[in-house]
Computed example of a mutant assay.
Amino acid sequence: MEETLKRVEMLLLSFYQDNPFVQYLGIKVESVEFGKVQLSMQIHHECTNVYKIAHGGALMSVADTAMGAACLSVNKKVVTLDFNINLMKAVPEDQLIYAVGRILHNGARTIVAECDIVDAANKIYGKARGTFFVNEKFAE
């Protein structure tokens, strides 16, 4: 199991290095466990709105990416079927945030995941939940 997780982690890092939108947003993989992934994203000016806070779409993108990465951590490639998010606090420009994606249901055809968007002090900014369709295995 440990060897498979290491292989999946290496593939996951490579997978997101090749993703242009993830690179544009500056999302980085911080940690990978079976069923749980932590990403980070610095809220740069390009990710803000006219109020100089993180645009909701940027936060939705990092949450969707974290949940998708959690799906990859259980060796499944997925696409998003359904997604919702509650944004609880404004994220100021230049803030470093973390998106922690976790698997709630690991089914053969669908996966349900959640994501907390937090800062280094674990202050919560948002919470998301999504349902994902399983396409295939991530790593053989």
Rank of each mutant, 00 (worst) to 15 (best):
G26M: 09
V78W: 06
N84F: 08
M88C: 07
C47S: 11
F34R: 13
K76M: 04
D116T: 10
I53V: 15
I43G: 00
K127I: 13
M60I: 07
G68C: 05
R129K: 15
T131D: 00
Y125I: 01
G107R: 08
N19I: 09
T65W: 06
V8I: 15
Q95Y: 11
A69M: 03
F15W: 14
H45N: 12
A139V: 15
N122A: 13
Y51T: 06
T110Q: 04
T4N: 15
T80G: 08
L96R: 03
L72E: 03
T48N: 05
H45W: 05
E2Y: 13
M67V: 05
L12Q: 12
I103N: 00
K77M: 02
V91P: 05
L96P: 02
G57K: 03
E3L: 01
G35A: 05
H105D: 06
V100S: 02
V112H: 02
K123G: 10
N106C: 12
I97Q: 08
R7N: 12
Y51C: 05
A108W: 07
G107N: 06
I124Q: 09
R109C: 06
G26T: 11
D94N: 15
Q17N: 14
L25N: 04
E9G: 05
G35W: 01
G68V: 04
K89A: 07
G101F: 00
V29M: 13
V62A: 03
V8F: 02
F83Q: 10
T65Y: 00
M41G: 12
A90H: 13
I103K: 02
A58S: 13
G101Q: 00
L5V: 14
L13T: 07
I103T: 03
F83P: 10
H44V: 09
V100G: 06
L81I: 12
G130W: 00
I97V: 15
A113D: 01
K77Q: 14
K76T: 12
D116P: 06
V91L: 10
L11D: 11
I43A: 05
G56W: 08
A58Q: 04
E136Q: 14
G126M: 06
M41D: 03
R129Q: 13
V74A: 07
L96F: 00
Y24S: 09
V78I: 14
P20N: 10
K6L: 14
I103E: 00
L59Q: 07
V134N: 01
E9W: 08
L104Q: 13
M41T: 00
A54E: 06
A54L: 08
H55Y: 14
A54P: 02
V118C: 01
M67W: 01
D18G: 10
Y98S: 07
T4H: 15
Q17C: 08
K127E: 06
